[in-house]
Design a protein around this nucleic acid. Structure first.
Lengths: 166, 166
DNA sequence: AACGGAATGATACCGAGTCTCAGTAACCAG
DNA sequence: CTGGTTACTGAGACTCGGTATCATTCCGTT
């Protein structure tokens, strides 16, 4: 972790400035959390993040994630009954395809979805406040790994896979 | 609660038999939980259920709900960050519109959704394992109540409304 | 440099859900 | 009916994600 790729540097610095703009203070601790966060391309658990930024306190990591959540810079994946994961939020309204093997998160926009949602609401004479769609998948990388013997190879997929779905 | 509507009786008895078919034992405790469950038309929290079937132990209520969940007779609503709710599962694959005011749950089938999901998966060369869609609404009844002053009227909406969404 | 409010960390706490373990009670022989 | 196997039950301890508290630190402004 001595030389960080410039793109990640930039990315975490952008986030830091987005926070600053909204009145939050620029602290080394926050910078560290943001760096850890951006260097994980996947969905991550807070506990994993804590591991990355030790010795930053657990409470602080949770607070930082909550802050980012409130600013809409990060979003939370419910993951059925498994440990909730978080992911950088690259855009406005979107949904997620999560790999249940490695935790990789793929964003997508569900334009058609809004139609469906509105129809459902109309049928029930209800007012829509929001919706959430999560798709659980095995990603291309993990499928390849599955196919070629049991080697977990260079792909992420730390210690434990998490059980799926509803 | 002295005279239960026959439909509810039947319903809870059907559930009981579905359980029995799959090897579970028919106990008075389970019957009580199932009766409580069916007499709540809405999404409910386990804690609410516990209140209804006192003095049945909390662990047992959780165990029963888990059992029903495994048999697919009940489904779990993630509810963003609020307390998770459960609802009778009337059918096969479906989704939920949950009223964030009163907890009423409306099932619907998202046929169009499967298309979308498959397209997303194909684009990412991923294998789909499942998906989950939740729509958060204010239901017709609650909208009416909102409109006509503050009277909560005959509608359910116990003590607390729960905060919403992502 | 000094001040005020925000950020931090340790730790206690909360709430949903599970595990353990001893006691009890369904079901299935016989 | 009687007994035995095995599942179910309840109390309570425990796990785990997340929050509240509170004393201390330190950012940013003056």
């Amino acid at each position: 972790m001595t030389s960080t790729s410039p793109t990640l540097r930039e990315q975490s610095e952008r986030l830091l400035h987005r926070l600053a703009e909204s009145g939050a203070r620029l602290t080394p601790t926050r910078a560290a959390v943001l760096r850890a966060l951006t260097s994980r391309s996947d969905g991550f658990t807070v506990e994993e993040l804590c591991g990355d930024v030790r010795p930053v306190g657990r409470a602080t990591v949770f607070r930082t994630v909550r802050l980012l959540l409130q600013k809409g810079l990060v979003c939370k994946l419910a993951m059925g009954d498994a440990t909730p994961r978080y992911a950088l939020s690259r855009s406005g309204h979107h949904h997620h395809a999560v790999c249940v093997r490695c935790g990789a998160v793929d964003d997508f926009r569900g334009c058609d979805l809004d139609d469906l949602v509105q129809r459902v609401a109309a049928a029930a004479e209800s007012e829509v406040l929001g919706h959430r769609l999560e798709v659980y998948v095995v990603c291309a990388q993990c499928r390849r790994n599955d196919a070629s013997g049991s080697a977990p190879s260079t792909h992420h997929a730390k210690h434990q896979k998490f059980r799926a779905i509803e």
